[in-house]
Amino acid sequence: AVCQVIGMYDYTAQNDDELAFNKGQIINVLNKEDPDWWKGEVNGQVGLFPSNYVKLTT
């Protein structure tokens, strides 16, 4: 993983390639090539999510 982030809001996947997560959930970021849509993993599920829905862990 590149880094870990925390969901600031609940996110519901809109497409099959997206990653759903809940507020407060830890997401392992796998790829930040696109500044707006990062690739991440939660509980074995991998997908894209909007980078503005998360904050970096300290």
Results as ranks from 00 to 15, higher is better:
residue 12 T to H: 12
residue 29 V to C: 11
residue 31 N to A: 14
residue 56 L to V: 14
residue 11 Y to M: 04
residue 57 T to H: 14
residue 29 V to H: 00
residue 3 C to L: 08
residue 12 T to V: 11
residue 1 A to V: 13
residue 31 N to C: 15
residue 12 T to N: 14
residue 45 Q to K: 14
residue 34 D to Q: 07
residue 4 Q to L: 06
residue 55 K to A: 12
residue 52 N to K: 15
residue 32 K to Y: 09
residue 46 V to T: 09
residue 16 D to G: 12
residue 26 I to S: 06
residue 5 V to N: 01
residue 6 I to H: 02
residue 20 A to H: 10
residue 40 G to H: 02
residue 12 T to P: 09
residue 31 N to L: 05
residue 53 Y to L: 11
residue 21 F to K: 06
residue 38 W to R: 00
residue 15 N to T: 14
residue 46 V to K: 09
residue 29 V to T: 03
residue 18 E to G: 09
residue 49 F to Y: 03
residue 49 F to D: 07
residue 17 D to W: 12
residue 41 E to H: 07
residue 49 F to R: 01
residue 38 W to E: 03
residue 24 G to T: 05
residue 53 Y to D: 02
residue 42 V to P: 04
residue 38 W to N: 05
residue 33 E to H: 08
residue 3 C to G: 09
residue 9 Y to H: 15
residue 22 N to W: 07
residue 48 L to K: 13
residue 4 Q to E: 05
residue 7 G to P: 07
residue 19 L to K: 01
residue 19 L to T: 05
residue 21 F to D: 05
residue 56 L to I: 14
residue 13 A to V: 02
residue 24 G to Q: 08
residue 24 G to A: 01
residue 47 G to H: 00
residue 32 K to A: 15
residue 54 V to H: 03
residue 14 Q to N: 09
residue 13 A to K: 09
residue 27 I to N: 03
residue 8 M to Q: 15
residue 55 K to L: 09
residue 46 V to G: 04
residue 27 I to A: 03
residue 24 G to N: 09
residue 19 L to H: 01
residue 55 K to D: 07
residue 21 F to W: 04
residue 1 A to Q: 07
residue 8 M to P: 01
residue 15 N to Y: 07
residue 31 N to V: 09
residue 41 E to V: 04
residue 17 D to L: 12
residue 9 Y to P: 02
residue 14 Q to I: 06
residue 45 Q to L: 10
residue 49 F to N: 08
residue 43 N to T: 02
residue 55 K to E: 12
residue 6 I to G: 05
residue 40 G to W: 00
residue 42 V to Y: 14
residue 32 K to H: 08
residue 57 T to F: 14
residue 14 Q to W: 04
residue 12 T to C: 07
residue 44 G to C: 04
residue 7 G to A: 15
residue 29 V to W: 05
residue 8 M to V: 15
residue 56 L to H: 09
residue 15 N to R: 14
residue 1 A to F: 10
residue 41 E to G: 02
residue 12 T to M: 11
residue 5 V to Y: 09
residue 50 P to S: 00
residue 13 A to R: 08
residue 9 Y to V: 15
